[in-house]
Design a protein around this nucleic acid. Structure first.
Lengths: 214, 214
DNA sequence: ACCACGACCTGGTGG
DNA sequence: TCCACCAGGTCGTGG
């Protein structure tokens, strides 16, 4: 595993600093939160990205917004070959992704391994992946995800929801990298997939994945 | 066969310095032939190709008929990566295209850069591109084009034969290319685009494509 | 033959 | 207006 160098001063304050991994609102189904002690790991969010259709499609790659890539996943010296990043998911499972830079498009991407993650988590356009880091052991990376908001802020499913008290301090994270993707009718045949970061995102701002961009 | 590959640094040449910007007598038939000394370059035609819809479409590539590709654009040894071909257009502007062989379709293609040429020249299906070479400096390549024959051979002939009616036609073609084209049409609203090779191709064979203009 | 992956390319767009 | 970014493509290779 390749270490990701912690940038001393990069841990800018944000709402994620106050992450609550201790106790959850009593009214919520607590079983899922408690079944993995992984939830108790002190993490800080590095960035999130709402997935584009391409991110979950046949291109088998995830574009990492340049600003975040540069800030958190330095390729220092390895631009040519890329490097392997190792992440832990919400189950404690390890995921290794090839992280590299594409000269042609001037963009940073996760390639090898990414498609497996998409498949296993059943990620879809509009769903959000969350990149985190251990607060103490800075080289420990985590990858999380949550479903897109299906009905918009108002009708959010109660389980994931109750974000009602959304702190609207909204990072421009959303606006920067957030694109409204078509909410292709989430068939009822799909088993419900819980938010793997509900501990953190009970407070999460609700993002409206509204109308198609194209 | 002449070597035709030019790498990045070799593209600098002289002819563009000598562009003739003297004011032109308006509406003279001969003006177009005289306004670029580029027209006086001794060239020989290698081949022409009427453009297919795909050649000007989103595929961003031009298929080079195999016999011509083999004959004039040898990839000797560079089949893997292709090579960069550098052409001069009728304005002395340089165009670089990636030339390569696609195993999947067993065909030779111009890829990178081609779409820009199509756009700037506003080429459409049925228009013809002309590949030429300097008669003396055999490695100097030229690329030209002419509009497709809209109404059939007879009309085409006389139409081209009257470039006096040339108008800027609202096209930003000339401005974009940096050429201060001063001639405006008096009444015709038809955006006529001159044949860039009329000096040579007055006698060129007319190819009728069935595809309607966009 | 297919598919994941590596590398490359381009147009649209927003700042 | 220009340009960086990135979504959405291409082809080729190797398994």
């Amino acid at each position: 595993m390749y270490p990701v160098y912690m940038m001393e001063s990069s841990a800018k304050s944000s709402s994620s600093n106050q992450k609550n991994f201790i106790s959850l609102p009593a009214c919520k189904k607590s079983t899922l939160e408690q079944q993995y002690n992984h939830q108790e790991i002190p993490k800080q969010t590095l960035f999130e990205k709402p997935l584009t259709p391409s991110d979950v499609g046949r291109l088998n790659r995830l574009v990492i917004p340049k600003q975040h890539a540069k800030k958190y996943f330095s390729l220092n010296g390895c631009r040519e070959k890329g490097l392997l990043l190792c992440f832990e998911d919400e189950l404690g499972k390890y995921w290794r992704f090839r992280f590299s830079y594409w000269n042609s498009s001037q963009s940073y991407v996760l390639t090898k391994g990414w498609s497996h993650f998409v498949k296993e988590k059943r990620l879809d356009a509009g769903d959000i992946v969350i990149f985190e880091r251990h607060r103490v052991e800075g080289s420990r990376l985590f990858i999380g995800w949550r479903r897109r908001n299906i009905y918009g802020g108002a009708v959010q499913e109660s389980y994931v929801a109750q974000p009602a008290a959304v702190a609207s301090g909204g990072s421009d994270e959303w606006r920067h990298s957030g694109y409204p993707y078509p909410v292709h009718s989430q068939g009822s045949s799909l088993p419900y997939q819980p938010d793997c970061f509900h501990d953190q995102f009970y407070r999460a701002k609700v993002h409206q994945m509204g109308t198609p961009r194209r």
